[in-house]
């Protein structure tokens, strides 16, 4: 049976993981490769790296990181942040990333989704959608870009439908309202988007505990849950989350001993 996926997310700046990760017995908690290996051992089903490097002069660092991760980690990983062209996508995929995630670049030029899907296949094109609830409406959400700072006036559910039609193979849906509060994912938004599209949806923003993840996967209809802080700060381990999901009747991949 296809399992629901648990996906730790790392913010990476100049090739280093930021947002103080306090994770078990790591010599260097800022080393993306070491962290990726640790989460792989813990049973992570996939990994997402979000590159927040501001200066294009420092962009080479992320390429080195992707290559080093691909050399040592044998589970799928996605890279997002700063990808603006099919040339950027090609480079990431050739270095070993399995998927690329685009957000602002897709809003700026929606054809980028078509071009990426045509050249590399839908399976490696993830569109990230950051959205906030529209004030006074309980069933509408507006797309934001530039890290959630800039409103676009676009409806998130409509945008989700459009990018899937254009060839996105997966959506990474972040609630900017819920993000950082650890009070749970935006379930109505997840449900609305998941019901509107035929591709897998990754829930993001708001995870504070395993119960929140159960809600996102169950009531929210998500196929995968992404989280950063609760894993990085040790609030709960991936194994604990998987146990709670299994107790709630959701299919999960059991944590197996990694031998590499």
């Amino acid at each position: 049976m296809l399992t629901r996926r648990i996906i730790p997310c790392f913010d990476v700046d100049k090739g280093r993981v930021v947002k103080g990760v306090s994770f078990v017995e790591l010599r260097d908690a800022g080393d993306p490769v070491e962290l990726a290996r640790a989460y792989d051992r813990e049973g992570a089903d996939e990994l997402v790296f979000l590159d927040i490097t501001a200066s294009s002069d420092d962009r080479e660092t992320v390429y080195d990181m992707v290559a080093a991760t691909a050399d040592q980690v044998f589970i799928p990983f996605t890279v997002g942040g700063g990808i603006r062209s099919t040339a950027d996508m090609k480079r990431m995929l050739e270095l070993g990333a399995d998927k690329v995630s685009i957000n602002t670049a897709a809003v700026d030029r929606p054809d980028l989704v078509n071009e990426g899907a045509y050249r590399f296949g839908s399976q490696c094109i993830v569109v990230a959608i950051d959205a906030r609830a529209v004030q006074g409406a309980d069933d509408r959400w507006e797309v934001y870009v530039h890290g959630g700072r800039t409103p676009t006036g676009m409806d998130a559910v409509e945008w989700a439908r459009e990018v899937v039609e254009r060839g996105a193979g997966e959506l990474l849906v972040t609630s900017m309202d819920a993000d950082g509060h650890q009070a749970g994912y935006d379930i109505p938004m997840l449900r609305a988007i998941s019901d509107a599209v035929s591709v897998p949806v990754i829930a993001s923003g708001g995870a504070g505990n395993a119960e929140h993840m159960v809600e996102a996967l169950d009531a929210g209809g998500a196929d995968a849950v992404l989280a950063a802080s609760i894993f990085h700060f040790g609030t709960c381990s991936i194994g604990e989350v998987k146990q709670q999901l299994a107790d709630a009747g959701l299919p999960v991949r059991p944590v197996t001993e990694s031998s590499y």
Partner: peptide
């Protein structure tokens, strides 16, 4: 079904 079939299966 969601398509692609994406993820871990037995």
């Amino acid at each position: 079904l969601k398509v692609p079939h994406m993820g871990w299966n037995t």
